[in-house]
Nucleic acid binder design. Structure first.
Lengths: 148, 148
DNA sequence: GTTGATGCAAAACCTTTGCACCGAG
DNA sequence: CTCGGTGCAAAGGTTTTGCATCAAC
């Protein structure tokens, strides 16, 4: 797991310590590709080591975020979800407003808009933090089936 | 205020009641083009009628959202902001991750992506609910000035 | 007069913080 | 051995809920 080494390096550089808790949070994030809430992460961590506290999870996540290892975004139900930036291809999310499901899309899809926004508003789009709301395939089919 | 009539109509249709509180929340939203938090809305409403309760504001906002009069999005600081959909041109937001400022952009800017997402993922983008994170003009200038 | 909406207070969440103790370096 | 990190508990902030009362229809 390369992110572990990277974490260790960043920590050393700042006189911070590598702990089992941080390692576990990192590993859990690694295994949850779609992102997870702090609570979900805690549950996974607890299955490895039950005594870990939610506040530790939050502190680890904040730390990882400040090291650009993790990014957070607001998922459905207004819940904050955290996701490893290092392992997966950079990507954005499609979020269904009906069923809440998240899909992943390639960043290239957004290149055109990004360029446009830079030109028109001098705004640097950070697509990897982006959640696009809408209605997913399944839900829109259900809807049209229901109204038919 | 056309949205008032629309609200009245929707309410009647559902056997719900038009109340001074709902009217006030609607009017305040009308006067806060950039959107506002429940708390901010309450403050404005309180200046008209001090006894109104925060929970009433929340209930009104939930109601308006379910009637598609209002949309909510997560602004900077993870706060939920509410915005009238009816009066302004439909638009999306640019949100600066550095300074938190919100800009408004035209929906047409997103037409290309919307079409692409529909084609590739059969996902119906609801651009009017969209908040695009990134770095604004001012902040990116500051940054390059600082590093120079 | 009915019954939906309100205000109030309390609960329910989620996230952060203070502090004594523990353990990574 | 030192000082940064942890667990625990408590506080903070926001949103929701239960209930008696009020007022729109």
């Amino acid at each position: 797991m390369c992110c572990e080494d990277r974490l260790a390096a960043e920590l050393r550089q700042r006189n911070m310590r590598m702990t089992p808790q941080r390692e576990m949070v990192l590993r859990v994030l690694h295994d949850l590709p779609a992102g997870a809430t702090a609570e979900e992460i805690l549950q996974q961590v607890a299955s490895l080591s039950p005594a870990v506290d939610l506040s530790t999870v939050y502190r680890s996540l904040d730390l990882f975020e400040s090291l650009d290892l993790v990014s957070s975004y607001n998922g459905p139900n207004n819940e904050r979800r955290y996701e490893l930036l290092t392992i997966h291809q950079p990507h954005a999310h499609l979020q269904c407003q009906r069923c809440g499901k998240l899909q992943t899309i390639d960043l290239q899809t957004l290149d055109t808009v990004a360029a446009e926004l830079l030109g028109s508003h001098r705004f640097i789009l950070r697509s990897e933090h982006l959640v696009l709301p809408g209605i997913c395939h399944t839900c829109s089919e259900q809807q049209s089936a229901a109204s038919a």
